[in-house]
Simulated scan of single mutants.
Amino acid sequence: MCAIGNRARTRSAPRSRRALALQYMSSERQEGKSTRKTNELILSADKRTFANRQHTMTEHLDLLEIVRRPLSPDARLEVQVSWEEYGRVQAILENDESKYPRLWYDGTRNVAIVAAPPSALHANMAGGLMASIIREVLTQQGLSSEVSRGFTLSTETGNTRGRTTRGRDGAMLYREGNRTTLMIAVEVGVSQSYESLRAAISWCVCALHCHLGIAMCIREQGPGEVPDRPQYPSIQDENAAVDEAEEDFRRQLTERPYGPLVRHGVTWFGRVQRVVLETYRAPDESITERTILDPSRSFTIVEDGEFVGGDVPPNLQEVVLGDCIPDHILDGDAIVARPVNFFRRDWFEALFQDGMVRTAGKRMRPRHQ
Rank of each mutant, 00 (worst) to 15 (best):
C2V: 04
I4W: 01
G5Y: 07
R9P: 00
R11Q: 13
R15C: 08
L20Y: 10
Y24E: 09
S27V: 06
E28C: 09
E31S: 13
T35E: 11
T38N: 15
E40F: 05
L41P: 00
A45C: 13
F50S: 02
Q54L: 07
T56P: 01
E59M: 07
L64P: 00
E65P: 02
L71D: 07
S72F: 12
V89Y: 07
Q90L: 15
N95A: 15
L103W: 05
A115V: 15
S119N: 13
S119E: 11
M130E: 11
R135M: 11
Q141A: 10
E146L: 04
R149S: 15
G150Q: 09
T152Q: 09
T157C: 14
T160L: 13
G162A: 03
T164L: 05
G167K: 08
R168H: 07
T181Q: 15
M183T: 10
A185Y: 09
V188S: 03
V188G: 10
G189F: 08
S191C: 00
L208S: 07
L212R: 08
G213V: 06
A215Y: 12
V226T: 14
P227K: 11
R229Y: 10
E244I: 10
E246G: 00
D248Q: 06
F249M: 08
R250Y: 04
E255P: 01
G265M: 03
W268D: 02
V275F: 07
A282F: 03
S286I: 09
V302M: 00
V312A: 01
V312R: 01
P314S: 14
N315V: 05
V319Y: 10
L321C: 00
G322D: 02
D327Q: 12
D327W: 13
H328K: 04
V336Y: 06
A337E: 12
V340G: 09
F343S: 06
E349V: 11
E349H: 12
G355A: 02
A360V: 00
P366W: 09
R367W: 13
R367C: 05
H368Y: 10
